[in-house]
């Protein structure tokens, strides 16, 4: 069991936790946070492969994570704004009730 394997297992576990949260919870904020956890899990993978990957010298893994964090920030900002809008509309933030857009 190399450190890389361990890192990957940790990230897998974190991803699964985030996925479970997104799938199981009814609170929209928690769903959003679950997705943030999945993003973090991906970031961990980038860093793990950057640290233990075959090619050295390139900062690509770090740069990717940096952009990922920026996009995650944007996503969180827009997502939470949406949540507030949904709350204003239906007086709660239960995701299963936000079905106005159904076909």
């Amino acid at each position: 069991m190399t450190p890389l394997h361990l890192c990957l297992l940790i990230s897998t576990a974190l991803f699964c936790i985030g996925l479970f949260g997104a799938l199981a919870r009814s609170n929209t904020i928690l769903v959003l946070l679950g997705i943030e956890l999945m993003l973090n899990a991906a970031n961990i993978n980038f860093i793990a492969f950057w640290r233990y990957g075959p090619s050295h010298g390139a900062a690509n893994g770090m740069i990717f994570v940096l952009f990922s964090i920026a996009v995650a920030a944007a996503e969180a900002a827009v997502g939470l704004a949406l949540i507030i809008a949904v709350y204003r509309h239906q007086k709660n933030i239960r995701l299963q009730e936000a079905t106005v857009l159904k076909g």
Binding site: A70, A73, A74, E75, A77, V78, L80, A81, I84, A85
Partner: peptide, 15 residues
């Protein structure tokens, strides 16, 4: 993207 997201978030959340 960050700028657009910021403005968009403000617009969506504002009344």
């Amino acid at each position: 993207i960050l700028t657009v997201a910021l403005i968009g978030a403000t617009v969506i959340a504002s009344t």
